[in-house]
Simulated scan of single mutants.
Amino acid sequence: MDNWENQRRDWRDYLILSGKGVMMGAADAVPGVSGGTIAFMTGIYEELIGSLKRCGPEAVQVLFKEGIGPTWRYVNGPFLLTLLLGILFSVTTFARGVLFLLANYPEMLWSFFFGLILASSWLVARQIEDWRGNAFTAFLTGTVLAYMVTSIAPAAVEPTSLMVFFSGMIAICAMILPGISGSFILLLLGMYAPILGAVKSMDIPVLALFAVGCVIGLLSFSRVLNWMFASYRVTTLALLGGFMLGSLNKVWPWKYTTAYTINRHGEEVPLVQENILPGSYEIMTGQNAYLSISLALMVLGAILVIVLARSAGTKPSQG
């Protein structure tokens, strides 16, 4: 029995849970921030992975043998539905505000997320008592892999039906990995703008195809993660902590664009960027680095993570 199965939630708990879903949806809208990081730091990550893992053939067997009610409880339906509604609400509402901030105040938004992810990585590291052997190797591996992924230049591809489907499978796996951004994976695949455009225009065929890919990828990858937590918990924690630390390369607030591309609307958008110091940023771009405000937002993000982790029982990886 999983350690989250004995939980009993009232309406206040579900209200808080929906808020966590809103935060996950807003984070996933930004190319570089993972909704999995939000789930991790708010204490629902293992419950999320364990619940998703149950949405498979076993659930179908329970449905035929015992009926709808037991099946709903078996897959932790109230938890998943509440979280999903929060994510969908965020994607269709608050995510627009996040994208507005990303376009107009990127230094401040990236600073806030930088603080969030840095503190989350630190909290994960605190849970690992013995850093010898596999734990250190896993942490270092996760850091290097995330750094390498976030250093890859985005591609430009034709948004075919097959590409929409496979991008959903791949991106959803990243979205539930702390530190690996599903939106950034879409950006690397050249599918970020087409999918975001489909969301804004409510292009149902494209969204449905993308959703099918997401469901297949989610149900498959959640089983892998659940097995990793059950069999190699400390090593898995170290690996995920490394993912978060390495992803800081992507969310560094001050970037200099060295190459641009033209999106399908004829707009010039950054293609390749390099991280620079705030002073160099002002000289090279002629723009205000907003250093004081940005540092304050970094601290605010870090404090928010610590507060959320303490409210979740100081164990950001447990439900």
Rank of each mutant, 00 (worst) to 15 (best):
S311H: 09
F64P: 00
I176C: 08
A174I: 05
G286Q: 11
A146N: 09
A146R: 09
W252N: 07
L109A: 11
D203F: 02
S292P: 00
E282G: 06
K315S: 12
P178T: 04
A193Y: 13
G246M: 07
P70D: 04
E268P: 00
M244W: 08
A211W: 11
L245V: 10
S34T: 01
A230S: 13
G86I: 04
Y105L: 13
P194Q: 06
F229A: 00
I276K: 05
S51Y: 10
Q61V: 09
W227F: 14
F184Q: 02
V75Q: 03
L248Y: 04
S294C: 15
G32N: 02
L188N: 01
A103E: 15
T150S: 14
L188H: 02
L145I: 15
F166M: 11
F139I: 07
C173Y: 06
T236L: 05
C173M: 14
T141Q: 04
T141N: 04
S121E: 08
A153H: 04
G179K: 06
N104C: 01
G279F: 12
I128Y: 04
G77Q: 01
N263D: 15
V144Q: 02
L52Q: 05
P106D: 09
A26Y: 01
Q127H: 13
Q61H: 13
N263P: 06
L239T: 01
A296S: 14
A193G: 03
T93R: 05
M175I: 02
L140G: 04
M1Q: 11
M163C: 00
E282Q: 15
F114R: 02
L248N: 01
S167P: 02
R73F: 02
N275W: 00
G115F: 09
N6V: 12
W227L: 12
A95G: 02
R223E: 06
T258H: 05
M1N: 11
G142L: 13
G217F: 09
Y14S: 09
E129P: 00
L123M: 13
K53W: 03
A238C: 08
T141G: 11
E129N: 11
V30R: 00
G190W: 10
N263Q: 08
A39V: 00
N288L: 08
